[in-house]
Design a protein around this nucleic acid. Structure first.
Length: 645
RNA sequence: GCGCCUGUAGCUCAGGGGAUAGAGCGUCGGACUCCGGAUCCGAAGGUCAGAGGUUCGAAUCCUCUUAGGCGCACCA
């Protein structure tokens, strides 16, 4: 449809440019509310009416004279107050779509793109908020790759931060455990730390004097090469592995795990600090509340100062982030060393190291565009990171530093009750509650995935009890992933998801399993055709290459056929639109609407029993086309496709 | 206090200048000897928070009011 529209637009422009004051860019197509009115509409006559001070309808009658005999257009009509509506030649359009089904009309625009997502503190289990981040990030990656972009996925590991420090404190001070003791802990280590972290938080509230020890441990971790740092590394590595396992369950993976400890040890910050000082992007404050700090000031709000280096000389989180962002663009002039962290089915996940002598042959970073998938609460900080690139003179890179922001997942009061989580009277007044790893307030990702999988398995059991148990499990996993990923994508990113188990565990209506089910039905038609020796999908090209006539279709069937095919043909437009607006709910809605139209069609028109050969052929082609488009859409959303369910 | 975001059907949300404001859930009623009922068809349900304005045209853009959320750390 993208290509089709572009060509049609050119046709119209060429025919009208000398007759009317129009510009190519102002020519846009609208979809008509109903195919009875036409397929594509143009509203230029309303704009021309203003310029020419004439009635739009009159202008339309003139304009239409120049729009005869356009390729692929059956006829052109005037409607309403001055719309010009185009009717597409359905048979030719459809064959054309089928013949170009494997072609991608999107084109890459960047040299290389880095997408950073997930970024969970490696001190506790992943929760449902992290799942939203990973689903959005991974879908972005899939769409960009479909578009033809070269994409590198990074999952930043903050292994020297306070959060890890606090768990180290918990092991050392509260549980009196050595590294050896910690290594002996079996079972779900990320769950263990989830609980421990909550205990530590509570302990700090009740024992303010412990702050000194807390700061000491953090400092030791930052320095490295000591027992505290060793424990921190052990915790971090083990929890990162747990996170990778969780994300692998829903088909999310990464190329590189950059660690904060390596940023520190390889002195990335020093280099960035020098740049910032040289370019006078930051200033040293000699008086006032921020005396002794290095701060950044902003054009739009000069009264505000953001502290980058504290008066004790230590760098803040934003400072490290600036260095990291510079590195992503290849602007830092320093690099990491790399080692393989995990190998899975031939797919490698690399991790940075600071050990000289490790792998230097592989290249990461050096992107021309960077997406940071981080929730909306960090907008201010992300603005500072982009701003600092600008202050350093990297205008282009600043513009290409994209904060992919999205709203949080919050907890409904109902779901807190179901999980037996305790809340204060103050919190009870709110309509929903923010997830808090610190307080242990949240639903762990693996718990939700387990529940989904269990329910899916039950449903499979009900419908297909005869299946092999391993197959049932594998189907249940696919359904779990489909349900979760669709749930995370269906809401606009600006919308707070107030988590509710009934909604998340629903497999009917606007859900992932509904999409999967639609595809299963379509596949099932082809399976049956093959089993009965009527038709094999391998021969589909024979049908596509032969002639096609829609004359025998009833008026109703022609309308239903066209509504389905036309909508399916807008797929790539939806993908591009989703990438440009970073709104993958568009893609989700597209797949859902397409499934709805398909299910309705499926219900009305038989294939196996149809005796009219021509009708049968048209229907086979229609289902094939829709099925292929739906497969592509599901792939981009990371929703797996079971053969049966 | 300043900044950003949000208010659309009973509930959860789409639609972000263009034709009759949509979907899911829930409610009520229905679906053939039928390719899978995780489905389909139908019904009820709306002052698009309120008031002004811009426009040929506003749920959509602007201003104000109002209700709510989130930011604004020498935390990350």
């Amino acid at each position: 449809m993208l290509k089709f529209k572009k060509e049609l637009k050119n046709q119209i422009f060429q025919r009208l440019k000398d007759k009317f004051p129009i510009e190519l860019d102002s020519l846009k197509f609208n979809y008509t509310p109903n195919h009875k009115l036409g397929d594509l509409a143009v509203t230029i006559c309303f704009e021309l009416a203003q310029k020419l001070k004439r009635n739009p309808r009159e202008i339309a009658e003139e304009v239409i004279n120049y729009l005869k005999d356009i390729p692929f257009i059956e006829r052109v009509e005037i409607a309403g107050g001055g719309y010009i509506n185009f009717f597409i030649q359905k048979d030719r359009f459809f064959l054309n779509q089928l013949r170009n089904l494997q072609e991608i009309s999107l084109e890459p625009e960047q040299r290389k793109i880095v997408v950073e997502h997930t970024n969970i503190n490696p001190n506790k289990a992943a929760h449902i908020g992290h799942l939203r981040n990973a689903c959005l990030g991974d879908t972005l990656v899939r769409c960009l790759r479909y578009k033809g972009e070269k994409v590198e996925v990074q999952n930043y590991i903050d292994d020297t931060g306070v959060q890890v420090g606090d768990v180290v404190f918990g092991f050392l001070e509260l549980e009196k455990k050595s590294l050896e003791d910690i290594k002996k802990i079996d079972g779900k280590f990320d769950y263990y730390c989830w609980d421990l972290y909550t205990k530590v938080t509570k302990y700090f509230e009740e024992n303010p004097e412990a702050q000194e020890k807390r700061a000491y441990i953090l400092k030791r971790i930052e320095e490295g090469k000591n027992p505290e740092a060793e424990i921190a590394e052990h915790i971090s590595n083990r929890i990162v592995k747990a996170h990778l396992n969780t994300m692998r369950r829903i088909g999310v993976t990464y190329d590189l795990l950059p660690r904060e400890s390596d940023i520190l040890r390889l002195k990335f910050w020093e280099k960035a600090f020098n740049f910032l000082k040289e370019k006078k992007a930051i200033q040293f404050v000699t008086e006032g509340v921020n005396k002794g700090c290095w701060v950044m000031r902003f054009e739009d709000e000069p009264e505000k100062e953001k502290i980058i280096v504290r008066s004790n000389g230590t760098v803040t989180y934003v400072g490290k982030d600036i260095a990291y962002q510079l590195w992503k663009f290849g602007l830092l002039g320093r690099d990491f060393y790399y080692k393989i962290f995990e190998k899975n089915n031939g797919q490698l996940i690399w991790m940075t190291t600071s050990k000289n002598g490790e792998n230097k042959n592989i290249e990461f970073g050096k992107a021309s565009k960077v997406y940071n998938v981080i929730d909306v609460r960090q907008s201010y900080l992300q603005k500072i990171v982009a701003q600092s690139l600008k202050l350093l003179g990297y205008e282009e890179e600043a513009k290409n530093s994209i904060h992919f922001s999205y709203e949080m997942v919050a907890l409904s009061k109902k779901c807190l009750e179901e999980f037996g989580l305790k809340i204060s009277p103050e919190e009870k007044k709110k309509s929903f509650l923010e997830i808090s790893g610190r307080k242990g307030l949240g639903i762990k990702a693996d718990d939700l995935l387990d529940k989904l999988e269990e329910k899916a398995l039950n449903e499979v059991e009900k419908r297909n009890p005869q299946l092999d148990p391993d197959l049932k499990t594998s189907i249940a996993q696919k359904i779990m992933t489909g349900a979760l990923r669709y749930f995370m994508l269906k809401y606009a990113r600006n919308s707070i998801i107030v988590f509710d188990f009934d909604e998340a565990l629903n497999f009917e209506g606007e859900t992932g399993p509904y999409l999967q089910y639609s595809l299963v039905r379509a596949n099932s038609i082809f399976r049956k055709l093959e089993e009965k020796g009527i038709f094999s999908e391998k021969e589909i090209n024979n049908l596509i290459e032969s002639e096609l006539s829609l004359d025998e279709l009833s008026e109703q069937e022609l309308a239903d056929f066209w509504s389905l095919v036309f909508y399916a043909s807008t797929f790539e437009e939806e993908v591009l639109n989703s990438i440009n607006s970073l709104e993958f709910s568009h893609l989700a809605k597209f797949a859902f609407n397409l499934s709805q139209k398909f299910n309705s069609y499926y219900h009305s028109y038989q294939i196996l029993k149809e005796e009219n050969k021509n009708l049968k052929k048209i229907r086979i082609l229609t289902v094939y086309y829709v099925k292929e488009i739906l497969r592509k859409a599901l792939n981009l959303m990371g929703i797996p496709q079971p053969e049966i369910m």
